[in-house]
């Protein structure tokens, strides 16, 4: 046995950990973006509780409650971080897009022949991801460049008089389809479900994803309609800022 210990160990090729890291980074960036968008929906829909509630949330993000006065630049910083995350995620996901016409053609044929929900769902994710690349970036850039233009009237004016509802309507649907499918696929991609229970969990997660997407679509639609209504009423005074009703 002693001789075996002296034998030189076979040279082992150094392993390339990057494919593993990129796979984790893709899932992690997706997960963070999903958590972000789900949180974002609650802040955005503070308008449903009234203009004062939304103003309070706006001020909170500008640090007014902690720092004494609002610093809109904090919103720019947050938007820049999310934009960076979106860029990272998009770059990583780009690796999974069909790389040429032949792959695209085969994928198309495969998806339509299979009539298989999960395959179709992934295809929807690729398409919505592509659309998000433009829509989400556009929205984030506006927030990044005009952080002071957020508020009960400023936002409503942008939505109605600035016709941003044309962007936000499609963005709402697309981002929640993408996020809902994404979270379902993340669970199955990594989740340690034992084989006998995989079907059960898969069904549960699918149901949960349907419910969550439906909930956020309702919440988002209600908020968007509210912004549009306020914006329409406020249109003659577009540009004016909201003054809280109860000023001390």
């Amino acid at each position: 046995m002693g001789a075996a210990a002296l034998e030189p160990k076979p040279m082992r090729q150094k392993i390339n950990r990057w494919p593993a890291r990129l796979d984790v980074a893709q899932s992690l960036s997706g997960l963070l973006l999903v958590l972000f968008i789900w949180g974002h929906m609650f802040f955005e829909s503070s308008i449903l509780l009234g203009k004062d509630a939304m103003l309070w949330v706006t001020r909170m993000f500008e640090g007014a409650h902690l720092l004494g006065r609002p610093y809109p630049v904090l919103v720019s910083v947050a938007a820049a971080l999310v934009l960076a995350l979106v860029a990272l995620h998009a770059l990583l996901a780009l690796r999974k897009f069909p790389a040429n016409y032949r792959q695209y053609h085969r994928l198309n044929r495969h998806v339509s022949a299979m009539r298989h929900l999960d395959t179709t769902a992934w295809y929807i994710q690729v398409i919505t991801g592509f659309a998000l690349f433009f829509l989400a970036s556009a929205h984030l850039l506006v927030v990044l460049l005009q952080p002071e233009n957020i508020g009960p009237y400023a936002s409503s004016d942008r939505v109605w008089s600035g016709r941003f509802w044309l962007l936000y309507g499609p963005l709402l649907l697309i981002v929640h389809l993408h996020a809902g499918i994404g979270i379902y696929r993340l669970c199955l991609k990594w989740g340690p479900f034992p084989a006998q229970r995989l079907g059960l969990w898969r069904g549960r997660i699918k149901l949960a994803a349907y419910c969550i997407v439906a909930f956020y679509l309702c919440l988002g639609t209600a908020s968007l309609v509210t912004y549009m209504r306020i914006g329409a009423q406020h249109a003659p005074y577009a540009g004016e800022r909201y003054a809280p009703e109860a000023v001390e």
Partner: peptide, 19 residues
Amino acid sequence: FYQLVGDDSGVFGCMTLLG
């Protein structure tokens, strides 16, 4: 095993389509 499946032609190529 990583040497064999640790890239996009192996396990990291799978996109969890579950077909």
